[in-house]
Design a protein around this nucleic acid. Structure first.
Lengths: 238, 238
DNA sequence: TCAAAAGTGTTCGATATACACCCATGC
DNA sequence: GCATGGGTGTATATCGAACACTTTTGA
């Protein structure tokens, strides 16, 4: 049998979202250790190892990037255009970062989420990571801009199927306004404050606390917390 | 740099749905050309070629299986567990069908749709293909049973985002009952006939025809057709 | 007392659900 | 004339959207 089947490396790339009370951000890394070009940002990713599932590879990438084990993640698509790594700069970087003669690269893209103010412990090969607002993304190598675009569509499905992931983006105690701003950032629209409160009280797995903001120069907002036990019961109910 | 990165073959596998006025079916193929075992059914698939995108590979598999070019399809997930091809039977088949020493195989799974009574022109490597009701699927090789389970979840998303795909499963002229039974099969629930009619008239891209059934031993049902022009306008409206 | 953001109810329209009878056709 | 499936309307509940004023706090 003719052996013209592809025999290739496979990578994972992770689109990690964060939220800062204003807009969604994505965690990008600097491609070159000796970067002198601030524009040289890309999605964190890695080739996958032998005996490693793609999901595990994504967890590994995220762990090396953030120091966090078991981050919430979701595979959303395989990108495999034969031309996705055909830019000379990208091919050169592949040669340096991995080994020569990678002539094609298939990647499996993941969505993930991280509190934006969490202290990250970067033990990856990348010099630095940088939260970048989705409205100000640079031109990135390979098809990473396309991957991000697709991830933004996909995140709606994810929120609707598993709203728990929203709370990966918020502090343990959060105000109604913070949650509303998060919805507004994800869905890129405004929500009426009163209607949003009604929506909130219907989410039984969000518990109001007695605690309130302190040292704010306006009326202090109530804190809420996510209650995983109630949330899990909800799923049984379906 | 240590080269313990995976260097692997990549396949596509296609879950092709059909509908027969009663339930959903999936198009399976006989794995071995000299099969003596009717249980030896699997999803149609193929390794992908050099210079071939995964979407193109899926189109190729479907073309070889059905003779139809440009079937509607949707990638829904990459399956890459290191153990997915570890069953001895499966490894033996891989050796025979492709070449020895494929020790691991990553697959990208696709959903597709086909009118179940369409005459298929099988020019693939498989001896025969067989429509199998989803309620009576055999135990299949690799993780094909898991792939089908996941595809059944995914098809709901697909219908909601692109209802046009429903009409890939119906004849050009169809009755309201046929469409309702299709919804019932996909969503695995009953729909009230009167409420369903209301839903139908709201779908402006479904046009009632003057034509009716003939030679039926009960009141003849009206035929409807899908109107692509109206459908495409609808999408602009969003 | 002012600025800044929190909190709170009602109305309306659209949508989903529940439910029962007559109609057309072939035999 | 009867068996079979086609076709139709109304009433109710639920959900989402629009909309404005009072409260609390720190400066």
């Amino acid at each position: 049998m003719k052996n013209n089947f592809i025999h290739t490396y496979v990578s994972v790339d992770c689109v990690v979202f964060g939220f800062d009370d204003d807009q969604l951000h994505i965690l990008l890394v600097q491609r070159n250790v000796d970067a002198n070009n601030s524009k040289d940002l890309k999605l964190p990713g890695s080739l996958i190892f032998n005996e490693e599932d793609v999901d595990d590879a994504a967890h590994r990438v995220l762990y090396e990037l953030t120091g966090i084990k078991k981050m919430a993640l979701k595979q959303f698509r395989c990108f495999a255009s034969p031309h996705r790594a055909s830019n000379p700069d990208d091919m050169k970087w592949l040669d340096q970062a991995y080994q020569p003669n990678i002539n094609r690269l298939i990647t499996v893209a993941y969505l993930s989420l991280c509190k934006i103010d969490r202290k990250l412990t970067n033990i990856s090969k990348y010099k630095s990571s940088k939260w970048t607002p989705v409205s100000q993304l640079p031109k990135m190598p390979f098809d990473h801009n396309i991957i991000v675009e697709e991830s933004l569509k996909e995140i709606h499905n994810w929120v609707e199927n598993e709203p728990v992931i929203l709370f990966e983006l918020l502090p343990a105690k959060f105000t109604a306004t913070e949650l509303r701003l998060l919805y507004e950032a994800i869905y890129n629209r405004k929500y009426d404050v009163r209607n949003f409160h009604k929506k909130l009280v219907q989410m039984k797995y969000i518990l109001p606390l007695d605690e309130k903001q302190e040292n704010v120069k306006h009326r202090a907002a109530r804190y809420y917390k996510f209650d995983r036990i109630t949330y899990n019961k909800r799923k049984i109910g379906i």
